[in-house]
Computed example of a mutant assay.
Amino acid sequence: MTPSTAPATAPLPRFRALALVALTAVVATACSVLPGRDYPTADPAAVVSRVQARSQWAYDAMDLPAATPVRGGRVTTAHTCYERWAIDRVDLDVASFAFDWSVPAVPADRARDADRRLREAFTGAGWKLTNDRHRQSKASLSLGFRFEDPATGDTFDLAWHDTTRTLFVDSSTTCARLPEEYLTGTWRSAEWSPRTGA
């Protein structure tokens, strides 16, 4: 069949062509016209108090010897909360909070006991185990877990490995909208660590 004898393509009816243009415009601008996620507003002072209180509760639940040293840190914010329908764009006025601390020089038997006690404490408090980090072979031993609070979405991680002999603790919150005074840069609290009773 030659080009001159090929059947012509029928034009789209006018209403279908207009509908196609309108649909394309909506899809192309969806990220800018749809509202952002409905995040709760966070009071950073209240979040810091909650995270620190949970860390103290966790340290007490592990029942480590009173003289065991603890390396504390600061509660910080992370702007990694994405806008709705735009996985490459973050909400700059929304952040999650995190707090890391550690307990160095913990022998394996003491780490096992601390892990077991803290698992029991979180389970008793109604938190859900979402990640179990127990790994053992002839050459190495890893302990730890992640628990999540069904009520808030907050998470709490514990990790220990026989190469470091350090209990690493990480507590984090879900995303929340920040007051305007906290929007410049990455906000950090004052230094803090769980009280050891030493």
Rank of each mutant, 00 (worst) to 15 (best):
A22N: 10
Y182F: 15
S171A: 14
P194Q: 01
L64Y: 08
T184K: 04
E191H: 07
T77M: 02
R146T: 11
W160Q: 05
L20S: 11
W127C: 04
L118R: 03
M1G: 11
R195N: 09
R110H: 04
A42P: 02
E180S: 14
L12R: 06
L158F: 15
A45W: 03
V106Y: 03
G153V: 01
A121W: 02
L167M: 14
G153R: 14
P3I: 14
A105R: 03
S193D: 06
A78I: 04
G124H: 10
D43K: 12
S193A: 14
T164K: 05
S55Y: 03
G36W: 15
D60V: 03
L12E: 12
R146I: 13
H161L: 11
G185L: 04
F122S: 08
L64A: 12
Q52G: 04
T155M: 08
P44I: 06
H79P: 15
A6W: 10
A19Y: 00
E83K: 02
W85L: 00
T196F: 05
T164Q: 09
L141R: 03
L118V: 06
A45K: 12
A6M: 07
R16T: 11
A125L: 01
A22Y: 02
E191I: 09
F97D: 05
T9E: 03
E148V: 11
P194Y: 00
E148L: 08
F97S: 12
D100Y: 00
W101Y: 13
S142G: 07
R188P: 04
D149T: 10
D157E: 11
L18E: 15
E181I: 09
A66I: 02
R54W: 06
A98M: 09
R71I: 15
T184S: 12
H134T: 12
F15N: 15
T123H: 13
W57S: 15
A176R: 14
G185T: 07
R50I: 00
E181T: 08
V47L: 04
F122E: 08
D154H: 07
Q56H: 05
T68L: 01
A46R: 12
T76G: 09
R165H: 12
G126F: 03
C81A: 04
A159I: 05
P3F: 15
C31W: 15
A111Q: 09
R110L: 14
V26C: 01
D149A: 05
A114S: 03
D38P: 11
E120L: 13
R110I: 11
P13L: 00
P40W: 08
E191C: 02
A198Q: 01
G73A: 08
R165S: 13
W187Y: 06
T77F: 00
P150N: 08
P69K: 01
A17E: 13
S171L: 12
G185Q: 06
P107Y: 10
L143E: 08
T9P: 12
T152D: 14
G126C: 01
P107F: 07
V51M: 13
F15S: 15
T174P: 08
P107R: 12
W101P: 02
A190D: 10
